[in-house]
Nucleic acid binder design. Structure first.
Length: 295
DNA sequence: AAGAACTCCTGGATGC
DNA sequence: TGCATCCAGGAGTTCT
C-alpha cells in the first residue's frame, strides 16, 4: 500500500526528526523484520549501534538512512504492505506490531525513539554498503541498484523509459508495476494513471507509440505528485506518517477501490477485475479492453 | 532468459 | 455467536 508518495511523506518526516541523531540502542523484537540483514538480528543490533544518521534518501518505494556520511553504509527500509516508521516519545506504550525499536543518544526532551511497526511483516530493515551507479553518478544501497529511477529523480528520462517499455512487448500495467523499469508506482497509482490516460491495463505496449507511453508516465507522475500534496493515500490506520497521521488522497481517487461508483468522466460504473493476482479497477467505457488482450 | 507462479504474513470482512 | 474462508499485495525466489 505505501507507494512513492507515502514513502516520500515518511522520508520527509524522518529527515526532519532524526537527521543528525546518533543510535544508542537497537532492539529487534521480531527477527523477520531484519531477515534481509546479513547475520540476523544480533548482527543488526551491533552493526547499527553507534551510527549517526547523516541523510535520509529514497528511490521509488525504498528508503534509506545514510550512516556516518556513508562510511558505515545505509540503513535500508522497505515498508512492504503495512510497514510504518514512527517517531514517538520513548515512554509511550509499545504498538501492537512493534518489530524494531531504535533509541537515540540523549538530546532534546522529551526523549523520542524510532519505531518500525509492521502488521503483515512484508517490510523490513537491513544494513548494506553503498555503491555508486556509473550511469547516474548516484550513490545507492547495493540492493537498490537494480531498482530503476523514479519519475522524480534527476536521472529519470521519460522518453527513454517509454522506449524501454515499448520494447518490453508486455501489458501496460505490468510494465508500470515493474520496479526495474520505473520505480515507485504500485497498484493504486497504476490504476489511477491508466484511468487518467484512458488506457486498459492489458494494452500491449508495442501497440502504443513511445510518446503515447511517455504520456502515461506523465499521468503517473502527476497523480503521485497530487497525492504527495495531500499527504498520501490512506484507507485505514495502516499507512501513516512518522507522527501517525493519515493522508487524504483516498478521497481523490477516480478508479482504484471505486467498484460500483460512477466514473467521474462518463458516469459508467467502475468495474473490478483480477489481473496479476491483484485487483484492477477501470472504467469499462473510458478504458476499453484491447482487441489483442493480455500480457 | 524472460515471464509466470509461488511465497511470505496478519487481521478485518464475509459467509454459513 | 463462532468458526472457516477469503482478501489486501511488494518483491524476492523458484520454476518453466
Amino acid at each position: 500500500m505505501p507507494e512513492l508518495p507515502e514513502v516520500e511523506v515518511v522520508r520527509r518526516g524522518l529527515d526532519r526528526w532524526i537527521t543528525g541523531r546518533t543510535v544508542a540502542t537497537v532492539d529487534v523484537l521480531h527477527p523477520r523484520a531484519v531477515r534481509r540483514h546479513d547475520g540476523g538480528a544480533l548482527a543488526f543490533e551491533a552493526d547499527l549501534t553507534g551510527c549517526t544518521i547523516t541523510a535520509v534518501e529514497r528511490r521509488g518505494k525504498y528508503l534509506w538512512l545514510v550512516l556516518d556520511g556513508g562510511e558505515s553504509g545505509a540503513l535500508v527500509a522497505h515498508l512492504g504492505m503495512s510497514g510504518q516508521l514512527l517517531v514517538v516519545e520513548a515512554q509511550r506504550n509499545d504498538d501492537p506490531h512493534l518489530r524494531v525499536r531504535i533509541g537515540w543518544a540523549p538530546g532534546r526532551t522529551p526523549q523520542r525513539e524510532l519505531r518500525f511497526v509492521d502488521q503483515r511483516t512484508f517490510g523490513g530493515l537491513f544494513l548494506e554498503p553503498l555503491v555508486v551507479e556509473p550511469a547516474l553518478g548516484r550513490t545507492v544501497p547495493a540492493s537498490v541498484a537494480h531498482i530503476a529511477p523514479d519519475p522524480f529523480e534527476p536521472g529519470f528520462d521519460r522518453l527513454a523509459v517509454a522506449k524501454n517499455i515499448r520494447r518490453k512487448r508486455t501489458g501496460l500495467k505490468r510494465a508500470l508495476l515493474d520496479q526495474t523499469v520505473v520505480s515507485g508506482i504500485g497498484n493504486i497509482y497504476a490504476d489511477e494513471a491508466l484511468w487518467r490516460a484512458r488506457q486498459h491495463f492489458a494494452r500491449r505496449t508495442e501497440s502504443l507509440t513511445s510518446p503515447q507511453i511517455a504520456e502515461v508516465l506523465d499521468h503517473a507522475t502527476e497523480v503521485m505528485s497530487a497525492a504527495l500534496t495531500q499527504g498520501g493515500t490512506s484507507f485505514d490506520a495502516l499507512y501513516v506518517d512518522v507522527n501517525g497521521s493519515s493522508g487524504y488522497f483516498s478521497r481523490s481517487l477516480n478508479a482504484y477501490g471505486q467498484e460500483g461508483e460512477p466514473c467521474p468522466r462518463c458516469g459508467r460504473f467502475i468495474v473490478r477485475e483480477a489481473f496479476m493476482n491483484r485487483s484492477s479497477f477501470r472504467c469499462p467505457s473510458c478504458q476499453r479492453r484491447p482487441r489483442v488482450p493480455h500480457g
